[in-house]
């Protein structure tokens, strides 16, 4: 296979593009030519040496980049797709040498595992699931959960991978009556999983038993909300949702994320905090990622905004570089970096 090295082009001056606490450390250019769609991180192990790698996705090519010295990257593997384009990278925590991708046009039609054969180092892909897939999430402890519809039933399926990304176990979770749109892990509770439904409810599963534990309505003011993160504290469930209808006209600013608290025993909840854009900044949520206490969002203005969820305010705004709007943002799963990308294949890595 070919080994390409990214060009370390002249990086833009830090002062002009790195507001707040963001420090540009590296850039890689995905030269495939087609539209970039996503970025992610994963661990890759060769000869007992584990390295944090970057995965980039264009419409029909997914590439694995290994680190060189001094923050440069080389492309070492590429997986090619011919019929169905890539929609998103699905990283699976706690597993080495495996990353998953969701393929489809508008909706997910396939989930594939991307591997590399250890004996001849050739790229392999394995179809994990196909059909009318609504949601997918990689979970801690090498697990992957999907929701899909057959003719009349919704299936919620969890797969568990072996440590080397190999053989897998399957388990079904009890499906709710409503279509699941997204999943979120509950931080610190490995056996709990949340789902947000099309009817504006949050459901909780016990992943060990597959039981559906509770359905909680999040209220009509949170319509079509998507859950990004949850944690349990003092018997209450705190949930970070993206704000569904942020408008610049609201008097308190433009909310992009919101924190709500729910009592899982009573299914009662209330709003705790809105995470708004600073005055003078406009834009609605396009896509985003939440990790630990930090949320990042690509806005319709083409900028990226970052919030400290504990402080409650926006801590950095990253304007477009070279007049190219940002199109995706991910927190690294292997360290404390932010990966941001443009449609033309430029990926920038910031330390935060």
């Amino acid at each position: 296979h070919s080994v390409e090295q990214n060009e370390m082009e002249d990086l833009p001056a830090c002062d002009s593009v790195n507001p707040g606490n963001l420090q540009l450390v590296s850039k890689l250019k995905n030269p495939s030519g087609s539209c970039s769609v996503d970025v992610g991180t994963m661990w890759w192990e060769t000869a007992g040496h584990k390295e944090p790698c970057i995965v980039t996705a264009c419409e029909y090519i997914v590439s694995l980049w290994k680190p060189l010295d001094t923050w440069q990257w080389k492309k070492v593997y590429s997986w090619h797709f011919t019929e169905v384009p890539v929609l998103q990278i699905v990283s699976v925590p706690d597993v080495c040498n495996l990353v998953c991708v969701a393929l489809g046009n508008l909706e997910i039609r396939e989930i594939r595992a991307l591997l590399c054969s250890s004996h001849d180092e050739s790229e392999e892909q394995l179809l994990l699931k196909s059909g009318n897939i609504k949601a997918v999430l990689g979970l801690t402890k090498r697990r992957l959960v999907t929701s899909s519809w057959t003719l009349c039933d919704q299936q919620i399926e969890m797969m568990t991978f072996a440590e080397d990304g190999g053989s897998k176990e399957k388990q079904f979770l009890m499906p709710p009556e409503e279509t699941i749109l997204t999943f979120a892990e509950v931080q610190g509770m490995q056996e709990a999983l949340l789902g947000t439904t099309i009817m504006n409810n949050i459901v909780i599963w016990n992943l060990k038993t597959g039981q559906l534990l509770k359905k909680m309505h999040v209220g009509d003011s949170y319509q079509a909300s998507v859950c990004h993160k949850a944690y349990s504290e003092m018997g209450l469930l705190f949930v970070v949702l993206r704000h569904p209808c942020a408008k610049g006209s609201e008097s308190f600013g433009s909310p992009v994320f919101q924190l709500i608290v729910m009592n899982p025993k009573t299914a009662l909840g209330m709003g705790v905090m809105l995470y708004c854009l600073p005055h003078g900044q406009a834009g609605r949520f396009l896509e985003g990622d939440v990790k630990d206490n930090f949320a990042a969002a690509v806005l319709t203005s083409g900028k990226i905004a970052i919030w400290d969820l504990l402080l409650g305010h926006c801590t950095a705004i990253l304007p477009p570089i070279s007049d190219q709007n940002w199109s995706f943002v991910k927190w690294s799963g292997t360290d404390s970096h932010l990966l941001v990308g443009q449609k033309d294949g430029n990926i920038f890595i910031y330390h935060y």
């Binding site: 038993t209 039981q211 003092m234 009592n263 899982p264 909840g269 209330m270």
Partner: peptide, 23 residues
């Protein structure tokens, strides 16, 4: 709104809901 509006709180909500829910 206050914490009281959320009703009785249990630190063991996950275990309790698991024992109450259908298998």
């Amino acid at each position: 709104c206050s914490k009281a509006d959320l009703g009785p709180i249990s630190l063991n909500w996950f275990e309790e809901l698991s024992s109450e829910a259908p298998p």
